[in-house]
């Protein structure tokens, strides 16, 4: 493999990994607060279509990015209202968020099918991006890549180094005790879900403004679900989410290169790789009960209704 090619592959792996990383980080914060939002796929696809539409209508991809974030956040509030204010089943409500998101995005995006999209321009940092091999990977990326790295640091710092992060974890581990201490469980969970929605929206915007600048129906193609699996894979630790996201980015890209090289495996089998890899990884992680139990938020998925 030539040097240039290795450089290019690294770059594309990052582009494939970034939406997974961002969506999974958002969901990690949500789950740390004790809420399981299975609507990531729906919020992501809403972010993708809104971001694309806003960029088209305004002519600016940055407006698109903002719109994607807002769309994901607004959409997540639907989930928050039902699960937190009305104490509905989180699994079923998350599923309905995904079903609604896929339907609504299909309707909104119908008139944009086939329209060439606007691409968010990369930020090339002069000098540093000339470093061999890793220069382009680290310093000639699209802005959302930089945001994803910054976000990882911020989420880690927030969860483990701030008082608010401690409160978030307390709420996720024992909402009853947190409530007894005077912590406003429902409010904190609303904020966490809002953050998760914004992240999922941004991840979707990355897909339709950077990764493949166009609108295709169901263009998230299960990435929201893979992001959910990554949170389990990472056992709720931000740094492991990075590792997981890049692992999956690599699998995705490997599959494209295998297809381009004309390897004699049907393309459908290669396309199935990321999904199969997800299952394998989940099995490996979850069969190790000690490792998963240590960081699993104890109240995950349980509805909380304050007693009067």
């Amino acid at each position: 493999m030539s040097f240039e090619m290795a450089e290019a592959i690294l770059l594309t792996i990052a582009t494939a990994a970034t939406p997974l990383l961002i969506a999974a980080l958002g969901e990690l914060v949500v789950e740390r607060s004790g809420v399981l939002n299975l609507g990531v796929e729906g919020m992501m696809v809403m972010g993708a279509v809104t971001g694309f539409a806003a960029a088209q209508l305004s002519g600016s991809p940055w407006i698109g990015v903002l719109a994607a974030i807002v769309a994901g956040a607004v959409f997540s509030m639907l989930f928050a209202f039902l699960t937190l204010s009305l104490a509905t089943n989180q699994v079923a409500t998350g599923l309905s968020l995904t079903i609604l998101g896929l339907g609504l995005s299909g309707m909104i995006g119908e008139s944009f099918i086939g329209t060439p999209g606007l691409k968010l321009q990369s930020w090339v940092i002069p000098g540093l991006s000339e470093i061999p091999l890793v220069g382009k990977f680290l310093f000639a990326q699209d802005p959302i890549f930089y945001i994803s790295i910054l976000l990882t640091i911020c989420v880690w710092w927030f969860i483990f180094r701030t008082r608010a992060g401690l409160t978030l974890r307390a709420v996720g581990d024992s909402h009853g005790s947190a409530h007894a201490l005077g912590i406003r469980v429902i409010r904190i969970r609303y904020l966490a879900v809002l953050f998760g929605g914004a992240c999922a929206g941004l991840a979707g915007g990355q897909l339709s403004l950077v990764y493949t600048p166009q609108w295709v129906e169901n263009m998230t193609a299960g990435r929201g679900w893979i992001a959910l699996a990554l949170v389990v894979f990472a056992s709720w630790l931000p740094w492991r989410v990075v590792a997981g996201a890049y692992l999956f980015g690599a699998v995705t890209i490997a599959q494209f290169h295998a297809q381009a090289q004309g390897i004699a495996i049907p393309s459908q089998f290669l396309s199935a790789l990321p999904y199969l890899a997800t299952i394998v990884v989940l099995v490996l992680i979850s069969s190790n009960r000690r490792m998963t139990m240590r960081n699993t938020p104890a109240s995950l998925g349980k509805p909380f209704v304050p007693e009067r």
């Binding site: 699994v91 299960g222 459908q268 199935a272 099995v283 979850s286």
Partner: peptide
Amino acid sequence: FNTNEILSSLMLVYVAQLF
């Protein structure tokens, strides 16, 4: 293996469609 059935059953949908 205590594997989350939501994620594994959903991933298998994509695999079935491709198959």
